Simulated assay, not measured.
Amino acid sequence: MKKDDCFYLGKIVKKYSFKGELLAKLDTDEPDLYDNLDAIFIDLRGNLVPFLIEKSQLHKSDLLRLKFEDVDTEADADALIKSDLYLPLELLPKLEGNKFYFHEVIGFTITDNNFGIVGKIVGINDSTAQALFEIDREGTEILIPMNDEFIVKIDRENETVIVKTPEGLIDLYLSE
């Protein structure tokens, strides 16, 4: 399994018991969706390794308590602390309407109600306070904030994101 075929679920943050149990901080708004997993991929030195889950349960709302098969000691558990957790993309819950996963809209065309076709979404920059659509318009990079007020519609059927940006925002990138 490659990382490109998976999504980041969270990180193992600490041990829970002396019997190899661990606590993972999940990167999700709905941790209860991941309470009954059978297996999970753990990133060990750049390789995704499958681990079977003996039992799991939510712990203090945003932590998932995990007991893996064959992880029975403190030393076994110590080796996994700070490891990232991944699941296959097909396990992501389907989103509808204007909710979307970042990876889902890469390659979509972005159209502005005022400007027209802006270009293709080539990436999402989420390293800033406000996540941004990275758009390629015939070699020119255009950044549009992923603001709920700007997003009019996600049209999955036609692979299009329709936005309504403030007047002049797109022109700023084209007036050079």
Rank of each mutant, 00 (worst) to 15 (best):
M1G: 13
K3R: 15
C6H: 07
C6T: 12
F7C: 11
L9Y: 01
G10I: 01
K14P: 09
K19M: 12
T28N: 03
D29A: 12
P31G: 09
L33C: 04
I40H: 00
L48S: 02
I53T: 07
I53R: 08
Q57I: 02
Q57M: 11
L58Q: 07
H59C: 09
S61L: 15
L66M: 07
D72V: 07
E74W: 03
A75S: 13
D76H: 08
D78I: 07
D78C: 03
D78E: 13
L80V: 09
Y86M: 04
E90L: 07
L91Y: 06
L92G: 01
L92Q: 08
P93R: 05
F102K: 10
E104L: 02
E104F: 04
T109K: 12
T111I: 15
D112V: 10
N113P: 01
V118W: 02
V118R: 01
K120I: 13
I124T: 06
S127R: 11
T128G: 09
Q130K: 11
F133W: 04
E134V: 14
I135T: 04
D136V: 07
D136P: 03
L143F: 14
L143T: 08
F150C: 02
I154M: 10
R156S: 03
V161Y: 05
E167A: 05
E167R: 11
L172K: 13
Y173T: 03
L174D: 12
L174M: 13
